[in-house]
């Protein structure tokens, strides 16, 4: 993915005739489908790994190609049931709130690629087996790769779609998401 990104960056160093006003700020919200890539070695049999997720991004667009931003959101990674040693059923779910710094680049008109890194708060909940337990883990090594199509309806309102892949290093969880986005530029 990184190689693809770099290749596209090199390709995009051509003359560009698109006229874009400089030094904007945009606030983007997104919502859509998320899928957790099930790489569990234990307990992955009865796993629900498709959920809805939401994201929010704030971008500073200082020049016509590159934007710098912050992203957060809420994603449920999985929900699972499993038999406990006391023969009762345990229910586990894991969710994540990332807080990432993003660099986004417009490749061709309305098309953008982005990479991001930052922290993520991973919450694990289990019910059954004695008591309900909630643990929170701060994951420090995480990354995101994304591709977005952003269509300007007018000077201030933009609609689009985005595909993104997240990896959370502490728990080695990977997920992707396809979202519809709505942005306000000011």
């Amino acid at each position: 993915m990184v190689l693809v990104f770099l290749s596209v960056v090199v390709y995009s160093q051509r003359n560009d005739n698109v006229k874009v006003r400089l030094n904007n700020y945009t606030l983007t919200v997104g919502a859509g489908w998320t899928h957790y890539i099930n790489n569990l070695q234990v307990g992955g049999e009865n796993l629900q790994n498709d959920f809805a997720g939401v994201s929010v991004k704030f971008f500073w667009e200082p020049e016509h190609r590159l934007s710098l931003g912050l992203e957060s959101g809420y994603y449920k990674l999985f929900k699972a049931n499993g038999l406990l040693t006391d023969n009762t059923l345990g229910q586990v779910d894991r969710s994540v709130i990332p807080a990432l710094v993003l660099i986004r680049m417009r490749i061709i008109e309305n098309m953008h690629l982005g990479i991001g890194t930052g922290i993520a708060l991973i919450t694990n909940k289990i019910a059954g087996g004695g008591q309900k337990v909630v643990t929170e883990t701060l994951s420090l090594s995480n990354f995101e790769l994304s591709g977005a199509y952003i269509y300007p309806l007018n000077k201030h309102l933009l609609l689009g779609g985005e595909v993104k892949l997240f990896h959370f290093g502490n728990t080695e969880d990977t997920m992707y998401s396809i979202q519809a986005t709505c942005a306000v530029r000011f």
Partner: peptide, 20 residues
């Protein structure tokens, strides 16, 4: 092995740890 539980190991009950 990568499994269902994450975080502080002492936060979980013995049944939860030995099961998952």
């Amino acid at each position: 092995q990568k499994g269902l539980l994450a975080g502080d190991v002492s936060a979980y009950t013995w049944t939860q740890l030995s099961s998952f």
